[in-house]
């Protein structure tokens, strides 16, 4: 059977695209002496960098895939900054949501959400806000903004668009070889 190559084809362009718009991130990183991983959050205009970082943690806790690096989750949540800039109600929903989550984390663990060490503890905190508009908006957006990134499809063994490759008629549509004989 023809298997899908799941190795990360990490090129600079993909990574920087993933980590927000390329040039500002690099500029911020070099001028402020930050690592690239943090710089994307500094590039947000409306939501505080700490808020953006918490959103990334929340995103990973909602859909945890250990084979995905943070850049995919960053790409998935980054648009919230723009949406918050356009709509004060969105900004308030996110800021209040993160505040509540951090407060719950402080009450229970004396730490902000993003610093609670075990995923299972953070999941318990998320379950506590599962019915809030904030959580519902995060999850329903994320199920598209995360899984619709073409760059991560090979990691799930999915090959995406096929017509331009002539379909699968010569690329393994019927190449299964392990079934019991019928």
């Amino acid at each position: 059977m023809r298997e899908v190559d799941r190795r990360t084809k990490l090129n600079r362009r993909t990574f920087l695209q993933g980590a927000a718009t390329a040039v500002p991130a690099v500029a911020v990183a070099t001028s402020a002496g930050l690592s690239i991983e943090d710089a994307w959050a500094e590039g947000s205009t409306t939501l505080a960098p700490a808020t953006m970082k918490t959103l990334v943690k929340v995103a990973r806790d909602i859909y945890p895939h250990d084979f995905l690096v943070d850049s995919y989750y960053i790409t998935a949540v980054k648009p919230w900054d723009g949406k918050a800039a356009k709509d004060p109600a969105v900004k308030a929903m996110i800021e209040d949501g993160v505040k509540r989550l951090d407060q719950d984390a402080q009450d229970r663990h004396k730490l902000p959400y993003a610093q609670v060490a075990w995923e299972s503890d953070r999941v318990t905190l998320l379950q506590g806000i599962e019915q809030t508009a904030f959580f519902k908006a995060m999850r329903s957006d994320l199920v598209v903004s995360l899984y619709n990134q073409e760059e991560l499809w090979p990691k799930f063994g999915y090959e995406g668009s096929s017509a331009e490759h002539g379909g699968y008629i010569k690329r393994g549509f019927d190449d299964i070889n392990w079934l019991p004989k019928v």
Partner: peptide, 20 residues
């Protein structure tokens, strides 16, 4: 379904490690 629709339709509303 492809990965994008599988995520949306396998168990609508589900999240966490069972789903992933």
């Amino acid at each position: 379904l492809g990965v994008p629709f599988m995520a949306a339709f396998l168990k609508p509303g589900a999240w966490g490690r069972t789903f992933t």
